[in-house]
Design a protein around this nucleic acid. Structure first.
Length: 418
DNA sequence: TCTGGGGTCCTAGGACCC
DNA sequence: TCTGGGGTCCTAGGACCC
């Protein structure tokens, strides 16, 4: 048996821990740049606010309905997530951290009568120790545990725990096909057109038909719905195969120098992430995009990739390559709204990188320098030291986060005073 | 006026090898 | 008129997740 633990309205719940005045009122948390709604309290959902809805569309609800709005505070959410995940290790030998707010727990071999009690205990412990509410779904497979969790969340009068075992046909019949984990919008439309409306209907389709139309991924989902585990557990956090840093700008950026500095910032951030997993990248890609919503403006999008002579994780050649790529795609006369840097072809830490006889980079020197960079930035805070190509901090910020809550658990100066 | 960011996996097709 | 069989690697595009 597998348990899926998922925090309710995670980002909103994190804000509520340190600001009890937010309880019982509609609250939303916005995406980067204060663009879209990415988390909603139950009260906000009741106001008809949709997931992913642009913020400007719901601004009237601030005055009219007392809607509370927050910029996303990833330092806070990341730290709260770590607290939840730490606690979960008390309850199972294997914990698969699936996302910032959910984890699968291996309940194999547990007595059937204990499953429910254990799930309840998880919920109570996390509420007491971290302060956020979770729901727990327990079932024979991961896809079924997802369904169980969803049922637990939907049952407002319940205790946040749902167990699926024995005959769970009813649960499958009550689950729309689009609500099944792994069935997205495109597949949902396709399946409905073919008469597959519920999770139960999907289990009645033939293997060959599912395989032909939804590939092996779809077939695995079908098996899982039938109670046969087919999606393997990933208890080790796998090294990233690609690393990206991309941003939308508050105001479209027309000029070269601002873009160069922004792209240098993105590249430096990517290099930091890369070094944190002890990887080396062999390819770098830069892309630029105008505002796709401004239909009346001239549109342009460009991308260019650079291969390194030898894989590297040094910020300096990575920024240099990013600037080279930027020059290849930059066209004047456009207002750019979005840009990003991606690293790929990543060599895992246990695998030595293929070197190059004519590598212009002195690898040892760079490695020492980057070690100093990283340790200073860990000790004194991000961007304590950076390259001259990056934004100095005196420039106006290119993105906005106007409603950011304090770093309650991660910044000394911002710890809550009572 | 204002519309996010960061990932993964699978498949088909093309290019290549012997 | 008729042109094999068995592979690998890479990439683009499409689907999905939170």
């Amino acid at each position: 048996m597998t348990a899926l633990v998922d925090v309710n309205n995670f980002y909103v719940s994190c804000e509520r821990v340190f600001n009890p005045g937010l309880r019982g009122v509609p609250v939303v948390v916005l995406s980067n740049n204060d663009g879209c709604v990415v988390a909603r309290s139950e009260e906000a959902k009741a106001l008809g606010i949709a997931m992913g809805q642009p913020f400007f569309e719901i601004q009237d609800k601030i005055k009219k309905n007392g809607l509370q709005v927050y910029s996303s505070n990833y330092a806070l959410y990341g730290d709260m997530s770590a607290r939840v995940m730490n606690l979960l290790h008390r309850f199972a030998p294997e914990v698969e951290i699936y996302s910032i707010d959910e984890a699968f727990l291996d309940f194999t071999g547990m007595e059937h009568t204990d499953l429910y009690a254990r799930a309840l205990e998880i919920r109570e412990t996390i509420l007491r120790c971290v302060g956020v509410p979770v729901c727990v779904g327990v079932a024979p497979t991961k896809v079924l545990a997802k369904i169980a969790n969803r049922l637990a969340k939907k049952d407002k009068s319940g205790n946040g725990v749902q167990l699926l075992s024995g005959d769970f046909r009813k649960a499958l019949q009550a689950t729309e096909i689009g609500d099944v984990w792994g069935i997205g919008r495109q597949y949902a439309v396709f399946l409905q057109q073919h008469g597959v409306k519920t999770a139960h209907d999907f289990t009645q389709a033939s293997d060959a038909w599912v395989r032909a139309n939804l590939s092996v991924t779809g077939l695995r989902i079908k098996k899982e719905l039938q109670g046969v585990p087919s999606v393997k557990a990933e208890t080790e956090i796998p090294a990233r195969k690609s690393i990206g840093t991309t941003r939308s700008f508050r105001q479209p950026v027309p000029a070269g120098p601002e873009l160069r500095a922004a792209v240098a910032d993105f590249a430096a951030r990517c290099a930091e992430k890369l070094r944190r997993q002890n990887g080396q990248a062999s390819t770098l890609t830069v892309f630029l995009q105008t505002n796709r919503f401004a239909k009346e403006e001239p549109q342009y999008g460009g991308a260019f990739s650079v291969s390194f002579a030898a894989p590297t994780s040094s910020t300096l050649p990575i920024i240099r390559a990013a600037h080279y790529a930027l020059e290849k795609i930059f066209r004047s006369g456009y207002r750019y709204k979005r840009a990003g840097v991606l690293l790929s072809g990543i060599t895992p830490p246990d695998q030595g990188a293929q070197l190059c006889m004519f590598d212009p980079v002195d690898r040892d020197k760079h490695q020492q320098l980057m070690t100093v960079f990283d340790s200073l930035n860990v000790r004194y805070g991000r961007n304590t030291i950076k390259t001259g190509a990056q934004n100095t901090g005196r420039q106006t910020r290119l993105t906005s986060q106007s409603k950011l809550s304090p770093g309650y658990t991660t910044v000394w100066e911002e710890i809550l005073c009572v």
